[in-house]
Design a binder for these strands. Sequence first.
DNA 1: GATTTGACTACTA
DNA 2: GTAGTAGCCAAAT
Length: 110
Amino acid sequence: MKSKDGFFERVYEVVRLIPEGRVTSYGAIANYLGIKGSARMVGWAMNSSHTKGVPAHRVVNRKGVLTGKHHFQGTNLMQQLLENEGVVVIDNQIQNLENHFWDPSAELNR
DNA sequence: GATTTGACTACTA
DNA sequence: GTAGTAGCCAAAT
């Protein structure tokens, strides 16, 4: 097996490493993958995240807003999942983002 | 093979 | 402070 599945797998791998009650941004993941500046790629990868069982609900944009909640099944499913993990989400926006923010390049690349 | 899209980010006016 | 545009790169059509 050669990881030729694409860089998608790398995105999924990082997202799966996100601890419960923590969130990260697309740019942070992109930065960790070495494609910083291309946060869109992370979002693009998430398009198939549901086929990989990736907790995409822990991935939000730089503002802590659940931009991709529309890609989830329910209308507020993404918010419910985050709140279930102890993350305070109001109006699709995460409160105390800095308190819940999880940077892969900071936590993994110590 | 070229064009379009895509769950973003940052800068500029 | 708000709005718009540019830049990033890869996959899908």
